[in-house]
Design a protein around this nucleic acid. Structure first.
Lengths: 219, 219, 219, 219
DNA sequence: TATGAATGAGGATTCATTCAT
DNA sequence: GATGAATGAATCCTCATTCAT
């Protein structure tokens, strides 16, 4: 009612700048948890600590919000992987093992890991997503892994396998773990959960072993 | 198989008996394609060739329809696998290879393969589904594979790996292929698609090789 | 499957002839219990022991069924009353008392007593009902009671009251009892129910006493 | 009545505060006119000058709206009556006459008089309503009248009648008038309508006369 | 006649989006 | 910018009515 002190723009300012991030995080969490169609936009707003109206100040529709969530989280997905690969020296098996472990730590374990669930569920409803996910993520990721495998083959460390298919064999269990974590893994009824770290180690152990050239001594 | 008694059933009758199956098939297809929440019940009806009202003659709500779809498709999912495993004689690697190939042919390639996409997307909204899917499908499937791996370990054919984790490594790529087939795989924008059969063969080749005891001669 | 004996038309016949009555009874009971709009026509059919389709063989719509129910039960409503009044000799108070008691026994206590609840609830939705109820029931009933009161006034037994208003005073509690019986009276939670017989006797006692000429000795 | 503080509330605000009342009034009118089941929720909204959606902002379902209507109108129903009775000095017949006339003016003549029609029509569908209406209205009302009659009996003004039954005889015509007003009374086809005021006076005249002790001089 | 499967208009309710404050 | 009251299109589901058998 009486004049309030000039709003110490800092707090408000800081919040304002953080808004998009907060909204994106809230949306990610809810879309992963309940699915895009089943998440109400007000829920997103509430979770981000703002009102319904404010959400629409930043994103013009729920659909645009979805795309922003995906676009925003896509960048994190490959994150360090490329860097790691570039400078790496040493056996290719070590590189692959590092890549897998890193991905799980940097992505699988973080909320961004849920993005795959959203995409898997919604690509068919939003074909444009397919396009940029394919170019921004699938292709670079496959290329990274394929090249790495090729490197192993070239150096004689691996058998002469087909990099394309092996790439799938290598990636699938990780993505699957991420999907599981956000579906069954998040269900209240604990069901002797998968222990991701152990599965990843088993995966590394077995697949890399399966790739090695027979004339080489086992790891 | 042999001549059945002259169908006393009228056309109307026959339709009535076929309805649940028709509705279930339509629902499966749409739920897989668009997701549960994003599918309108009328769409299901139309796709099954009936009217909105008829759908509700057979299933009291969209939610019950979803459960029926899952329940109905559950049976197919393990189907032959258990039989195959029981009578099998020969190297465990052959058995595992057969199981994987059979699963893909019997489930992955059929509409039932889409069930996994639905479940992954909806378990968190329908905890009861999580429960019975876990008990009816996940657990039996894991057990089947785990036991088979153990058999290989016991016979000395495989290294002394931990069956639980290896089971994941073995199953994940197949389920992932099924998920892919119904998400990216179904997108119009062809993106040098994964060739499931080849991935499966690569998976068999690499993982089984990675399981073999070192002292044994390679396959 | 084998030829059945020629349908002993009697049973079927009897049922067929009883149908309209059975349907009307079922409808009356349900309309009274749940209201017209809230009663499904299939419920009526089931309660009458026939199928939905059969109901429509007898009444072309739910609305017509309602009107038939009302029309059918209207006739019973005055029933014997007129006869009683015509031949009656003796004090007017006795005649009025008899009329009230008879109405309650013949109508109030029977399912037809519920008709008032239906009519009260539905006249405004079906104005035509108002018309024939007014002519078939209200008017004759009022006339019967009014004339009887007038008779008492004429004979010097009653004070010089206005028959119109006293008619209301006389009738209202009976109709109200009937309404109560089918609303609160039918609720599971027994709430120290009104005892109709006693209320009627109190009504007779008090109102007739209130009507008597002061110079006459009390009853 | 005197100047209220300058309303800091905006138009929007004021509307918001008025909404529940407006909705309740609209609902009361329509439920009384057409019945609960036959009233569409959109009609209520339109009558209150808002859209369908707005109704649901204030009441979560049509059923809850009904309950709110009843609950809200309950308070008015006994209103002054108890106060009148408490302070009253003078003959019991005067008190009873005042109570009846007041009830008609305060309730019977107002929209709240329609509540009885709704309840009569719907109690069997909403047993909870029966319960709280019974405890909040019926019981207190009966008690008030019964005690008053007892007072007359105790003072020797009335004969030794049973208060319970006489209460019914006293109340029924008033409630019946209220019911009539909202059913037949509201029908376009004028049918030499009941004149409530006159019926009430006749009722007072006759019933009170019927209650008086014979040894007392008539009114 | 009698049945009950099928229909689809109608009604309750939800929720993305707008907009006055 | 921020809010949250208001809107109404969209969707689930019901049920009066029809009609092939």
């Amino acid at each position: 009612m009486h004049a309030s002190p000039p709003p110490s723009s800092t707090v408000r300012q800081r919040r304002k700048e953080a808004r998009p991030q907060e909204l994106l995080d809230a949306a990610l969490a809810l879309f992963v948890e309940k699915g895009f169609a089943a998440t109400r936009s007000e829920e997103v707003a509430i979770r981000a600590g703002v009102s319904k109206g404010t959400l629409y100040l930043y994103y013009p529709s729920k659909e645009e919000l979805l795309k922003a969530v995906i676009r925003h989280n896509l960048s994190r997905i490959l994150a360090d992987s490329v860097n790691i690969a570039e400078g790496f020296e040493g056996p290719t098996s070590d590189l692959l093992a590092t890549l897998l472990r890193t991905w799980w730590d940097q992505v699988g374990e973080t909320p961004a890991g849920g993005i795959h669930k959203i995409i898997m569920a919604e690509v068919r409803n939003f074909p444009e997503i397919a396009e940029f996910y394919y170019h921004e993520v699938i292709l670079p990721a496959r290329e990274l892994i394929s090249k790495t495998i090729q490197r192993g083959v070239d150096s004689g460390e691996f058998r002469a396998v087909s990099p394309q298919e092996v790439t799938q064999v290598l990636i699938a269990p990780l993505l699957f773990l991420a999907l599981h974590k956000h579906s069954f893994g998040a269900c209240p009824i604990s069901m002797n959960a998968i222990e991701p770290a152990q599965v990843i180690e088993a995966q590394i152990d077995i697949v890399l072993r399966g790739l090695l050239s027979p004339e080489r001594p086992p790891l």
